Simulated assay, not measured.
Amino acid sequence: MALLRDAELAGAFDRAAGTYDRMTSASPGYHRHLRRSARRLALPGLGAGWSVLDLGCGTGASTAALLRAAPLASVTGVDASVGMLARARSKAWPGRVTFVHAPVEGMTGAGVTGPYDAVFAAYLFRNVTDPDAVLGRVRDVLRPGGRLAVHEYALSGRAVDRALWSAVMAAVVLPWGRSHGDGALYRHLWRSVLDFDTADAFARRLRRAGFTGVRVLPQPGWQTGITHTFVATRPEGAGRSVRTVGRPDHTSGPG
């Protein structure tokens, strides 16, 4: 099957937005694993003075994970789906949280320019048409020395992990999608993971994009070998001048 991309994928998420939180809450470890990846950003001082860009924020599950890890951080959530953002905005957030409707490829045109101290991207990169171009945009909006954490389904490359992923999807997720009229979205979810980089390949992609200190960290439980956290740093050097952490600048765009 052909994967959904761009406006077609955003539309599929729009249609599924009303039931998406119920689906993810039924997935063992979904929110716990997001929180683990958010903690791996290792933001000091509860995130006070740190600006964080939450790319592909969806209904706000990743935003909530960031606030659990760094409750004093300023967080800007960006997503291409109007429906998912509507769900996110309907929840209670501190005033330091803002949401912006934009595809990541067009986020600078929506006012999301940074520089940010950290970027968190959960379940984003296998859903974009050109991951390398998106990594370039992420690098551009990070301050030199800024931190990146990517939380993604990126298989180990072992046949057993591919088989386990397909088995879970066939037994639980695909039937859910069909029963709620969202079969195309969840078929995309299944195939996008099988077609995406292995964990080692995505780590190499990060290094090619100019990130340093790249580490690949597995998630526990049944998702070991299926879901990983990738942490990396934009190196110090040429580009935007380094600003002092604790004095954040503009972190939000138009809602």
Rank of each mutant, 00 (worst) to 15 (best):
R139Y: 06
A238T: 12
T212I: 05
T244F: 13
V231E: 05
A238V: 06
T198S: 04
A201E: 01
G210C: 01
V193W: 10
L189M: 14
V168G: 06
P220G: 03
S156R: 07
D182E: 14
R208T: 05
G181P: 13
P175I: 04
L164N: 05
A209N: 05
A133L: 12
N127I: 05
A149W: 01
V173G: 04
P220H: 06
F125M: 13
T244K: 15
R215S: 11
R158F: 05
Y123T: 15
F202E: 01
L148I: 00
R178G: 13
H188K: 12
T198A: 01
F202P: 02
A133P: 08
S252D: 07
S252I: 01
L124W: 15
A163F: 12
F125H: 14
G177H: 07
V231Q: 04
G239R: 03
R139W: 10
Y123M: 14
R162C: 09
G237P: 11
S192A: 12
V245Y: 10
A232Q: 04
D249E: 09
V231G: 09
V173R: 12
V128H: 07
R207E: 02
R243A: 15
A163L: 07
S179P: 07
W176A: 05
F211A: 01
Y123C: 12
S156E: 02
L206W: 01
G157H: 03
V150C: 12
V168P: 08
F125N: 07
L155Y: 02
D161E: 13
A232H: 11
V231H: 03
G246M: 05
D200V: 07
G136Y: 05
G237Q: 05
S252T: 04
D161L: 00
A232R: 11
E236M: 12
G221A: 10
R208S: 00
V141A: 04
T212W: 01
G183Y: 12
G181F: 14
W165A: 03
V216A: 11
S192D: 06
L155K: 01
A170L: 06
A232V: 07
R207I: 00
A184G: 14
G146D: 00
R143V: 13
P248Y: 08
G146H: 08
H151K: 04
L217A: 09
A199W: 08
V214G: 05
V141P: 02
A154G: 04
R187W: 14
H151V: 14
V173Q: 14
R205C: 00
G136H: 02
V231P: 10
F125C: 10
Q219K: 09
